[in-house]
């Protein structure tokens, strides 16, 4: 039975696509057949982060409109076995995303895959609503920052009222908090909301804390999901997220600042 997971946030620029690429790669690396779909019609980016932008021939909208078969549009990831990317259309607008069309494609994917990851666009319009509608589980990507936390709360409300599970009175969508761009040093100085603050305000279980890390940009520059950089702190935190998602119990990391040496204390840095 395939599981559909939406990566959502409301606010833009908080790390949905980075997270989609990392988690999809992590799940596939564990041997699960995984497909990751870009729902950001007109502004596709997942292909760039996954490093397959030059292999896009057909897209999600082509499949919905019957202009291409699903297997023609799916791109096999070159870093990980068991992983496929369904890119968004770059030329159409979000109205091309019909509820029936999306449902048909997801049903077809469910026959072949264990996990279907839906990378949501920002906002609460059609693209975002379509991405979350079929979700069994939701990963709420949030920055420790006021506007991101408020938007996450808004998206939680929408998941609880407008998802398929809500409309059909089924068991609610399982929610996970993923706190990204976390800087424990600034939290200790009282300059940034802490993990506990955000957890208390949103009141949903925490999946992982992804620390602020230069490697996230380094990885996207190269078109390589950050989870593949073994030395990267963000990559390790995403790997933890995958393990926890699969039911492992592992302690949280990267939630406190590394201790500074005496020279760093004196001269900063």
């Amino acid at each position: 039975m395939a599981k559909t997971i939406v990566i959502t946030s409301g606010k833009g620029g908080v790390g949905k696509t980075t997270t989609s690429a990392a988690l999809a790669s992590g799940l596939a690396r564990q041997g699960h057949r995984t497909v990751v779909i870009d729902f950001d019609i007109g502004l596709r980016n997942l292909d760039l982060v996954m490093g397959c932008e030059r292999r896009v021939v057909y897209d999600f909208i082509n499949v919905i409109n019957g202009e291409a078969a699903l297997h023609q549009a799916l791109i096999k990831d070159k870093h990980t076995d068991n992983l496929y990317v369904l890119p968004a259309s770059q030329t159409r607008d979000k109205d091309a995303l019909t509820a029936e069309g999306v449902e048909k494609v997801l049903e077809e994917l469910a026959e072949d895959f264990d996990y279907i990851i839906c990378d949501s666009p920002a906002g609460i319009e059609r693209g975002a609503l379509m991405a979350l509608y079929h979700a069994d589980e939701a990963i709420i990507t949030t920055n420790p920052e006021v506007s991101s936390v408020r938007d996450s709360d808004r998206i939680l409300g929408i998941l609880q009222s407008k998802s398929r599970r809500a409309e059909l009175n089924m068991e609610p969508v399982k929610e996970h908090l993923l706190l990204t761009r976390y800087d424990p040093g600034r939290v200790e100085k009282g300059e940034m909301l802490s993990v506990e603050d955000v957890k208390d305000i949103l009141a949903i279980p925490l999946l992982s804390v992804i620390p602020e890390d230069r490697d996230v940009l380094n990885a996207s520059n190269k078109g390589l999901p950050v989870i593949h950089l073994p030395e990267s702190r963000a990559g390790m935190a995403y790997e933890d997220a995958v393990q926890r998602f699969l039911g492992e119990e592992i302690p949280m990391r990267f939630t406190s600042a590394p201790r500074k040496g005496i020279l760093q204390k004196l001269f900063g840095g």
Binding site: V146, V149, V187, E191, S194, D197
Partner: peptide, 11 residues
């Protein structure tokens, strides 16, 4: 120093 506490309260 106080800004995180203010953020928490507002949210």
């Amino acid at each position: 120093e106080n800004s995180a506490a203010i953020a928490r309260e507002r949210l």
